[in-house]
Amino acid sequence: MAARIEHLVTSGTFSLDGGTWDVDNNVWIVGDDTEAIVIDAAHDAEAIAQAVGGRTLRAIVCTHAHNDHIDAAPELAERTGAPVLLHPDDLPLWKQTHPDKAPDAELTDGQTLAVAGVELTVLHTPGHAPGAVCLYAPALTALFSGDTLFSGGPGATGRSYSHFPTIIESIRDRLLTLPGDTVVHTGHGDTTSIAAEAPHLKEWIDRGF
């Protein structure tokens, strides 16, 4: 059975720097009928576990450690036995949400994760958060961008642990070099493509997005 991409939207809150906002998050499941990985276990471990079903969950991958992307990760790991993977540069953010539970393993730039016969390459793309990563799956013509790149622009950089010049560098050097037909599956909102976003790089810089 060929690998496929499944999409779940969960709702909750994002909290940082003393503020809290209601958010809808995209949860991505990559796999086939027997195994899968979850990208960003947001808000609702029960709903995510139901979407995974009886498949073996190989990993719970965190694109970064803002609470809305990791709040359900430990519970989902406990239910499924899957390891939680996070880039170590985001441990300070992780500890704000889960001070007593560490991730199970580290994500590193260039690492490959295999599931259902496809490989996803970890791209370290700091800026929105120090340990932000994207996952590139060329066999699926897909990039899972977390909050690094959205339809219409970069992720937010106006809060702690974020940096606008760094996210622009990450997008320019790590993402816009990918094939234009690569579909960008984002952490919030609609999907886009590399070709759709690439022409706007100078505009983002000029606007200080």
Rank of each mutant, 00 (worst) to 15 (best):
T177D: 08
H128G: 10
T182V: 10
T148S: 15
A129P: 10
P179D: 14
L57W: 07
T20K: 03
I167C: 06
D109M: 10
D71Y: 03
R172T: 07
D100E: 10
W204P: 02
T141N: 14
A2N: 13
D89H: 03
H7R: 10
V183Q: 13
S151E: 09
V30L: 12
G53F: 02
W204V: 07
P103I: 04
R79E: 06
E35W: 02
L140N: 09
A47D: 13
P130T: 11
L57P: 14
V52S: 02
K95Q: 11
A3Y: 06
A59K: 04
V52A: 01
T192F: 13
I167E: 03
I48Y: 01
A114Q: 13
G127Y: 14
S145K: 12
F209I: 00
H43F: 04
V115Y: 09
A3W: 01
I168A: 08
W28F: 08
R79F: 00
A72K: 07
D206N: 04
G155E: 08
V133P: 06
L86K: 00
L16F: 08
L86G: 05
E78Q: 08
P138H: 10
V183G: 14
E75A: 01
T177L: 08
A198P: 14
Q96P: 01
L86N: 04
D32G: 02
T56Y: 07
T141H: 12
A2F: 12
E46Q: 14
Q111S: 15
P83T: 03
F14G: 01
A49N: 06
E78V: 12
L176K: 15
H128F: 11
M1A: 13
V30F: 07
H43I: 00
G53S: 08
H69M: 06
L91V: 05
D40W: 05
D147H: 09
A36V: 01
L91P: 08
E197N: 05
A59N: 05
A105N: 05
Y136N: 13
I70P: 00
P99K: 09
D68T: 03
G155L: 13
L86E: 07
V84P: 02
I70W: 00
E169T: 13
Y136V: 04
R58N: 06
A129Y: 09
P154W: 13
T186P: 15
G18Q: 01
P83L: 04
S15L: 05
G127F: 12
P138R: 12
A116H: 07
E203F: 03
I60Q: 00
V61P: 14
D24I: 05
L201Y: 10
S162Q: 15
T34S: 01
E203D: 15
V27M: 04
H69W: 10
A82E: 00
A195W: 06
V52Y: 13
E35C: 03
I39C: 02
L175H: 07
D104R: 00
T192R: 11
T63P: 11
C134D: 03
D104H: 07
A41C: 04
T192M: 15
D24N: 11
A45Q: 04
T108P: 11
F14S: 14
R55T: 03
E203S: 10
I171W: 08
A196L: 11
T80G: 09
V23F: 12
H98G: 05
L149F: 08
L123D: 04
T148L: 06
T121Y: 08
H64K: 06
A3D: 13
T80W: 03
A73S: 01
G110I: 13
A114M: 14
